[in-house]
């Protein structure tokens, strides 16, 4: 099992960031995201929490040795479940790979919370657990896990810059209408 984690602050309020998660893709920093679809969505009438399940298509540039061993297809898919809690002001996204899960499980969790010290900024917590499937040849499992951690840290950097770009530029529907009327 390998772990990855990072923590930083976005210079945007939590409300803005929580809108931004629906505009995160496409962005020029994450060209590997090919499609995003909502599979299920519900609002809890008691808590007001919005739960969304999405399937995200990803184009991986896997190294040749990975393709050779796994014979993996160019498009892989991940399942993402997000919760936006308006009462506790906690937004979370959990992502698990669907493709290649017979070899490897990558569980990624992101939390967005208002910063305790600066209310106009948002704390971003990201953790990932990478575990090769039981029964995978040990040397291969180790190599796969290491490669995944490298990929995650590269993607994490791009993800951060990409989301920052989105947060600076996206318009909510009413902002878009105001802008077009101006």
């Amino acid at each position: 099992m390998h772990f990855f984690s990072q923590l930083f602050q976005f210079e945007h309020p939590w409300l803005h960031v929580s809108h931004g998660i629906w505009y995160k893709y496409p962005n020029p920093y994450c060209a590997h995201v090919a499609s995003v679809d909502v599979l299920d969505r519900s609002v809890n009438p008691e808590t007001g929490v919005v739960r969304t399940e999405r399937i995200i298509g990803v184009r991986q540039n896997a190294p040749a040795w990975v393709i050779k061993i796994l014979g993996c297809t160019p498009d892989t898919y991940v399942r993402e479940v997000s919760f936006v809690d308006p009462v506790t002001r906690h937004t979370s996204l959990t992502t698990v790979n669907l493709s290649m899960s017979q070899y490897l499980t990558v569980l990624e969790r992101i939390h967005y919370l208002p910063s305790a010290d600066k209310p106009d900024t948002t704390e971003f917590h990201q953790t990932a657990e990478i575990q090769a499937a039981r029964g995978t040849w040990r040397a291969l499992a180790e190599r796969l896990e290491r490669w995944s951690v490298e990929r995650i840290s590269q993607n994490a950097q791009a993800g951060r810059e990409g989301f920052e770009h989105v947060l600076r530029t996206f318009q909510t529907p009413s902002q878009a209408i105001e802008a077009s009327a101006a």
């Binding site: 496409p26 995003v36 679809d37 996206f170 318009q171 878009a176 209408i177």
Partner: peptide, 15 residues
């Protein structure tokens, strides 16, 4: 009309 107004923010493709 609304769709064209919303086009300033790009949207991702479906499957």
């Amino acid at each position: 009309v609304a769709d064209s107004r919303l086009s300033t923010t790009a949207m991702s493709s479906s499957l």
